[in-house]
């Protein structure tokens, strides 16, 4: 997603509150595996935000952004 990344900083996909691991998503979202999949293209890089309890696209940003430790060190 170079186009999005070039335009935005502090996206959810780079936030410590965010998770989009496909296996975790299938465990957290009941029924996702039945007729869908955590590994499907339609999910793109969407994931769950623990801070706000929302499921959202990885390119979103918000005031609660918290960089990962590795990113902070860099």
């Amino acid at each position: 997603m170079p186009a999005i990344r070039a335009r935005m900083k502090n996206m959810c996909v780079d936030c410590a509150h965010f998770c989009n691991d496909p296996e975790k998503m299938e465990n957290e979202i009941p029924g996702l595996q039945v007729m869908g999949s955590g590994w499907a293209s339609v999910r793109n890089i969407d994931g769950l935000c623990r801070k706000r309890d929302v499921y959202l696209a990885g390119y979103y940003t918000c005031e609660h952004f918290k960089p990962l430790k590795g990113a902070r060190a860099a």
Partner: peptide, 11 residues
């Protein structure tokens, strides 16, 4: 699931 992500739906 695609639209939930696109619109930022509640968990």
């Amino acid at each position: 699931i695609a639209i939930a992500g696109a619109v930022g739906a509640k968990k």
